[in-house]
Design a binder for these strands. Sequence first.
DNA 1: CGTTACGTTTACGTGCGCGTCAACTTGTCT
DNA 2: AGACAAGTTGACGCGCACGTAAACGTAACG
Lengths: 137, 137
Amino acid sequence: MTAPIPTKDDLLNIRQMCDAFDVTPRTLRFYEAKELIAPLRRGTARLYTYRDRARLKLILRGKRFGFSLEDIRQLLDMYDRAPGQQEAQLRRTYELAADRLAQMERQRAELDEAIAELKEQMAWGGSVLAGFRNAAE
Amino acid sequence: MTAPIPTKDDLLNIRQMCDAFDVTPRTLRFYEAKELIAPLRRGTARLYTYRDRARLKLILRGKRFGFSLEDIRQLLDMYDRAPGQQEAQLRRTYELAADRLAQMERQRAELDEAIAELKEQMAWGGSVLAGFRNAAE
DNA sequence: CGTTACGTTTACGTGCGCGTCAACTTGTCT
DNA sequence: AGACAAGTTGACGCGCACGTAAACGTAACG
């Protein structure tokens, strides 16, 4: 098998983790230093649980969105601190999420605008290219 | 007047330029060092022409698109040499823009997804909060 | 004439997200 | 036991896009 799909309670070492997510060991250790993930230890060696894999997935997605690792750390804390929490703390979390959501929606609006502008520019360039094609005949 | 709108042949000093575009002097000098703009000099002092202003506008727009300054420099150079430009070079630019556009649209799709997920989480948290309120009566 | 404001160059500092050694320990195989 | 792979912890380096401080020039104002 070229793809030994890990089950929920499999524990992956750092190499398997890197292969699975296409990252380097340095990256995983860096994320750990930044408290984004916290793998188990067998002696000194790291063992990555299902939870770590789920978190890493979210980390990489967050990165594609353009969030900083610090942003992502806060989001992750929010995601899993939810169950069994005191009301006040949960409400704090909720408000943090609301802020984040607003931020994301602003970001989306800006992205939409940028996309529209770029399309406009490209239409202009496209017309110039069309001119070239006409002149070429 | 709080807004002394500059005409095409006005020359702006660095402060006016910064106020007009909401950047710092350091930024303008940095862009100049990177050969993105090339203001006139009166003695040693910089004087920004209409052309500089137009270029800065494009630079800042490019940044919003997520281009690096080096990318932007190349695009500006091509833009300058546009009159009498070879089709090939312009097409390069066009393709570069198309790639970037595709990236941005992927990013937008992912952002939408993330927003949806976050909203879902928040609905869940909201229901928990509602439960607290019921238990409190 | 001094001083205040604004500009200049040069150069080192910063935050982010890792890359890249070096030096060491820890299994694993033969 | 010896060798080798794979892991570990520092610690320094890097590219980008500037921030920041030092030391200096220049022009206008009172």
